[in-house]
Structures are given as structure tokens and as C-alpha cells.
Amino acid sequence: MGAIYALVALGFVTISRASQIINFAQGEFVMLGGVATFFLLNGVRLPYPLAALIAVMIVVLVGFAMYLSVLYPLRKASILILIMATLGISIFLSSTSGLIFGTLPKALPPFTDEQPLMFWGISMLPQSVWVLVSTLVLLTFLYLLSHRTLLGKAMEASSTDPLGADLLGISRSLMVFLAFGVSAGVGAFAGILITPIFFTSYNSGTLLGLKGFIAAVLGGWGKNSGAILGGFVLGIVESLSLAFIPSGYKDAVAFVILLLILYFRPKGILGSPFIDSRRW
């Protein structure tokens, strides 16, 4: 569970680093990834890897289209309006997916064998291992992208110092455009990874998006490592909480954590580049 929150949180962070926008449609990218793969696999009958690849590409295109059609025309508006716009897109995407692909939940076959593996008395699905490994790979990839390439550095520059970035000739619109593509891709990938374990339906994106957002805040808003840490911490705390409180409150735990972190440590566990710690 934690790995999924982490992947969603990663998507949030990628966009906010480039543009400071909080993209509430992030959960819908996850949903679209799973649902589109399901459609390509069972509707068009493509082989699994190809279906997954095309689904990721479709969702990346959706991410680009979302930026070009809604957010780019609104770029002069305040950040708050852009965030509201992403909420609208989120509702639009989930309803459209319900209309096109149907409203019943969907499951994908696991990548490999279904027999649970045993590690020191803890049983685990092979698919969970896939999720963990893929999360690590993606993290490494995003780390290299933002710290080792000119593109990533340009992305970060346009976020931390917009004026400076402009002066250096970095096209900020292009950076945000790319960030949307990357985060849509990460989201879609997460969706494909988790659909074999948890079922994806047209409206499952919202809750995943919110939990991912909480994970991102928990770990430290604006940090890739924070997103990953926050995701895992949130997943573990949620599962452990069941030992002490009735399971009906499971979803509430995440929101209580969000409130606590906002009261006592708004910059998150690892600290946030966006929130000035001196103010607190």
C-alpha cells in the first residue's frame, strides 16, 4: 500500500517542483493507467507489455493535453485558480472514464506467478515485490532526471526562482508541460502496477490522489525522497493503526495524520524547500 501512495506522491511532487501547482488530477492518472491497460488487454487484445506501454503513452498524452487545453491558457491566473482547475479536470477524467470504459471495477492479471512468497513468516504476493522494485527504479530515474540532467535542473530552477529562470532563457511553460507528462507517466505506471492487486474502477482515483497528497505533505512537500518516505510511512501507519482502532476508521487515519503534521511540522519529515522553516 505504501509503495502506491509513494508513487502517487511522486507525481504530485514532480508537478509542484516545476510549477508549484498541486495537481489534484494525479489520482486520475493512476486510474486511467489501470483502466486503459485493461481495455487494451481485453478489448483490443494486445499483449500485456505492449498494452501497458501504450496505456502509459496514452496517459502521458492526456497529461500533455490537460496542460495545453486548461492550464496553459490559465497560466496568468493565480496558483489557487490553477489548483481549482485541476480539481475540475479530475472530475472530468473520472466521469469520462466511467462513460467510455464502464463503471465496474477492473482487475489485471499479475505480471508473474500468483503464489504468495514467504519471507521470514511474512507472506507476500509476487506482484507486491514488483511494485516495490518498480518504485525504487522510478525513484532512481526521477532522481537522475532532476539532479543529473540539464532538463531536470532547468525544471527545478523554474520553480525555485522563476525570474532567474526566465533570465537564463529557460522556457517555463515548456518545463511545466514536460512535468505534466512525467507525472502522468509515473501515475499511469503506478496504476498498471497496482491494478493486479487492488481493483481499479472509474472513481478510485480520488481517494488515491488524496492519500498520495497526504503522503507528499507528510514526507516533505516538494521532495522526491520525502514523497517516497511519506508514502511508506503512511501505508505502514494505516495498516498498524488497525491493530488499535476499529477498521472502519482506516481512511480517517490518513487525514488525522495530515492534520497532525500540519499542526506540528508543516514542512514534513524531511523538510520542504517551499515552506520556510524559520516562520515556524
Binding site: 500500500m1 492487486i197 487492488f198 481493483f199 478510485s204 481517494l207 494505516e238 495498516s239 488497525l242 491493530a243 476499529p246 477498521s247 472502519g248 482506516k250 481512511d251
Partner: peptide, 14 residues
């Protein structure tokens, strides 16, 4: 004593 909700996507803890 444990229950679940229609939206729960993982019942492992219960």
C-alpha cells in the same frame, strides 16, 4: 469485530 467498507481495496490488515 473487524469490518470493512465497500471502498476498501486491501483487507490484509483485518
Amino acid at each position: 469485530q473487524e469490518t470493512h467498507k465497500p471502498t476498501d481495496i486491501d483487507m490484509t490488515p483485518q
